[in-house]
């Protein structure tokens, strides 16, 4: 439609200008703060340039937070994709159309919940004495106590399970819808060749869906960066620092423990650089 009209300019320019201001001002200001030594308790500050960043790399708690964040990212993304593909294929194979609709509706519910709600629901459920999720264990072992949220070895997985509960089930619905959009001929052909059900999916349908599945994984990687709510409510980074991700550590440095806003901001800037570079590269690759 090549028409001469002012519409593109009047519609796009104000919005993009506002978005640019709203995003660039905080971003640039984050860098400025990171080069200073601001604290919440006093209005005074001076420029310290890169010393916050130097301190960060000498800070073992920061290095731990980087490692926890990487673990969180890998565990949640892999588990979500496995659950999503597994349940999606199962629905495609064994559920009647009416049943599929019911499951689709049910599986969307967890992801709609506020993360804070989801975190509470499962914090109650994981309670060692009265929780509903630990009840089967108590029943089988005759009352032994299992407290997944307070053991360093299991805490991260317990919190991650809530994330997978929300996103894995939701993505299963999307995988099903993707499978339903495939043309039936290749599946029929494979069936005539006596391929087993799992072989059809492993060698025919899932490879055909490679591109959308990778996009889906990309979305999950971005969403996994937002782990703060779950961790804040369920463990506060504990036990010790076992679930302290970067945003949790930045928050506790900037607000709870010492009010070192500049130090927290330096951390945020490093996170920003890492995610923007990683995701820009991934995105270009997905698009190509």
């Amino acid at each position: 439609m090549a028409r001469r009209t002012s519409l593109p300019v009047t519609f796009v320019v104000p919005t993009i200008a506002i978005l640019l201001v709203l995003s660039m001002v905080p971003t640039l200001y984050a860098i400025v703060i990171a080069l200073q030594n601001r604290e919440l308790s006093t209005p005074d500050y001076s420029w310290v340039w890169l010393s916050n960043f130097v301190d960060l790399f000498l800070d073992r708690r920061f290095l731990n937070a980087v490692w926890v964040s990487v673990k969180w990212e890998i565990v949640t993304v892999v588990a979500t994709m496995v659950v999503a593909i597994g349940l999606g294929v199962l629905m495609f194979e064994v559920a009647s159309p009416r049943l599929r609709n019911v499951y689709c509706l049910l599986f969307i519910i967890p992801v709609l919940l506020p993360r804070v709600s989801a975190a509470f629901v499962w914090k109650f459920a994981y309670h060692p004495l009265y929780g509903i999720a630990t009840y089967p264990y108590r029943l089988v072992t005759g009352g032994l106590i299992f407290d997944p949220l307070s053991k360093p070895a299991t805490a991260l997985f317990a919190v991650a399970s809530v994330d997978v509960w929300q996103w894995g089930l939701f993505f299963a619905v999307i995988v099903l819808k993707l499978l339903e959009t495939l043309p039936p001929q290749p599946i029929e052909a494979a069936r005539l060749d006596h391929a087993r059900r799992w072989q059809i999916h492993a060698y025919v349908t899932l490879p055909m869906l490679k591109a959308p599945l990778i996009s889906l994984m990309f979305v999950k990687m971005i969403e996994s960066l937002r782990s703060f709510d779950l961790i804040y409510v369920m463990t506060r980074g504990g036990p010790g620092v076992a679930t302290e991700t970067l945003d949790m550590y930045a928050f506790s440095q900037g607000f709870i423990e010492s009010g070192k806003v500049s130090y927290a901001s330096a951390m945020a800037v490093l996170m920003m650089i890492a995610t923007v570079i990683t995701f820009t590269m991934l995105w270009k690759r997905v698009q190509a």
Binding site: A264, A268, V276
Partner: peptide, 17 residues
């Protein structure tokens, strides 16, 4: 790309602003 921005990275400077 606005979605890539870590929320802390937006929240801390905005709080100061």
């Amino acid at each position: 790309s606005l979605r890539f921005l870590p929320p802390v990275a937006v929240a801390i400077p905005l709080m100061v602003i």
